[in-house]
Amino acid sequence: MSEDTQVQTLGDPIYELRGVSRSFGSGLNQAHVLNGISLDIAQGEFVSIVGPSGSGKSTLLNIMGMLDAPTRGSCYFMGQATHELGERQRVTIHREHIGFVFQAYHLIDEMTVYENLETPLLYRKVKSAERKSKVAEMLDRFSMVAKKDLFPEQLSGGQKQLVGIARALIIEPRVILADEPTGNLHSSQGDKIMDLLSGLNRDEGVTIVQVTHNERYTEYGHTVVELLDGSINAVSQVERARSTNPSL
């Protein structure tokens, strides 16, 4: 696949951030975590957000995921200003367009792999038969059929993150927001997860925004946004020097 075709898949901006600031506390204790971030992310892009601890990476991701709101500035998702959305609309976007992947996986401990995958579909009120086939398809695709009745505590870290990604993917989202998806994994497991994410981006056009500490994994994306003290320090395009493994 050539770089040209990739560029062609990049469509209209899915995210437009205009002067987004976020501060916590007030008065003397006020901490400005984000300072006037403006950023466009096109559909089908793979963006890595990097920066030292406390630079505001996760806060930025949370604002994009509508889990947090900017104190100033605006964030547009698919052309809609997120601060104008009611709970109902926000929940609908979570149900239909955004998949989350976390460093700590955040699977529900009391649920089996199968049930964890099923939960987003339950909230989307997908019919039982369709739910079954979608979960089966995911299990098959991630080679986890044999593990479907296991509980999270019976899985390795890499396996848990596979379930986490499968759960994010099952709603066929426009965008996956991944907060240090490899942070708790051994490097071999981490490589596998990153291959998976870039495959999804490349083959299915899913927009991916990841926060990462690991420099090696920034190379999987197209664009690297470097934060420092709440501001964008640099935005760079990744050169496709490294070939990725298309198979899972």
Binding site: G65, L67, E87, R88, V91, T92, H94, R95, E96, F100, H106, L107, I108, D109, E110, T119, P120, Y123, R124, R167, I171
Partner: peptide
């Protein structure tokens, strides 16, 4: 709280 957070991220409303 973690479960609540996960469910909300997966599309649960506060009411649910």
């Amino acid at each position: 709280a973690r479960e609540v957070g996960v469910r909300k991220v997966l599309g649960a409303t506060q009411g649910q």
